[in-house]
């Protein structure tokens, strides 16, 4: 192996610093969440304890954390399933170049770049003027979809731009119906990307703040609850909560990545051996 140029080591050092910058603060609050009951929001650690984690499990101490976690979790699953299904359908639709597809494409881009507070304000106004009350599972759900769907569709566009159409033609030539072609040929091929879409759908919803702010109603989601805490909680209990919910996010990400890896391995095992046989 040829020796690496000096620029490699400089850039590697820069990259390492970037990772420290990226993860350092999160690691710091993870450490500080084990702060002694007498300790404050900053170092030094006066001792280690599980006091602040225990605090989280006591109902009165810090509002309705577990209720908001439950709502965020359910909402995340709702948004995830909807995002996956609507993104697949949308991705398939855009391969057909139907009239109005350009307009719809620009709407997707607009949905991505529009300041989130506009969605929050607009949806809130519509619901109040229509005499409906906002609720996380209706107005909050829709407002979050306006954020997750563009990501799902961008992934689908990227996937279908690289999709080899000859697989579908082969299926059709063998007599598969359009539905069979999608079910047995297209979906299995794009499955890993769909897991990616699901990951975006769940995590973006689970962490979404700005678009949910005016659309969640009187029952908070977890990010809203945490933000509420920042204004009136001045103890490390907020670090304990931050550590737990970040840990939860990491677990979710790990599970999704594991599924992608496993499907990839299974596919490699069961894949065709065409071209590898006797020559």
């Amino acid at each position: 192996m040829e020796t690496r140029p000096r620029s490699f080591y400089i850039l590697a050092a820069f990259f390492t610093l970037f990772l420290i910058f990226l993860y350092g603060p999160t690691i710091t609050i993870a450490i500080l969440s084990f702060q002694d009951p007498q300790g404050g929001l900053t170092f030094p650690m006066r001792g280690t304890s599980l006091h602040w984690f225990r605090d989280l499990f006591e109902e009165q101490a810090v509002g309705d954390i577990w209720g908001s976690f439950r709502r965020s979790f359910i909402l995340g699953l709702m948004v995830m399933v909807t995002t996956v299904i609507v993104s697949i359908m949308g991705g398939l639709a855009f391969r057909k170049r139907f009239a109005g597809s350009t307009l719809l494409f620009y709407l997707i881009i607009t949905s991505l770049v529009i300041p989130s507070i506009l969605i929050s304000l607009g949806v809130g106004l519509i619901f109040s003027q229509a005499g409906l009350s906002v609720h996380w599972s209706t107005s909050g759900f829709g407002a979050q979809l306006s954020w997750t769907l563009p990501f799902g569709l961008l992934i689908m566009f990227a996937v279908f731009n690289r999709f080899d159409k000859s697989y579908e033609e082969a299926a059709r030539d063998l007599g598969a119906s359009p539905w069979q072609t999608i079910r047995h040929v297209v979906l299995p091929i794009i499955a890993p990307s769909l897991i990616g879409v699901a990951l975006f759908g769940f995590t973006l919803s689970y962490d979404e703040f700005a678009r949910t702010l005016l659309t969640a109603g009187s029952y908070n989601t977890l990010p809203l609850e945490i933000f509420g805490m920042t204004t009136n909680v001045t103890t490390p209990v907020i670090f304990a909560l931050g550590t737990l919910t970040t840990l939860f996010s990491f677990i979710v990400i790990a599970v999704f990545l594991l599924i992608v890896w496993l499907t990839g391995r299974r596919r490699a095992k069961q894949g065709s051996d065409a071209g590898k046989g006797l020559v």
Binding site: S87, G90, A93, F98, L104, I119, S146
Partner: peptide, 30 residues
């Protein structure tokens, strides 16, 4: 192709209409 394209795009279009276009229109009105 047009019809199936529209049908497949319908859910997406519906979400964007209700939670993107209408909110913008509402904000402009208000």
């Amino acid at each position: 192709n047009q019809v199936s394209g529209w049908l497949l795009a319908a859910p997406l279009a519906a979400v964007l209409l209700v939670f993107l276009v209408l909110p913008i229109v509402m904000i402009v009105i208000v």
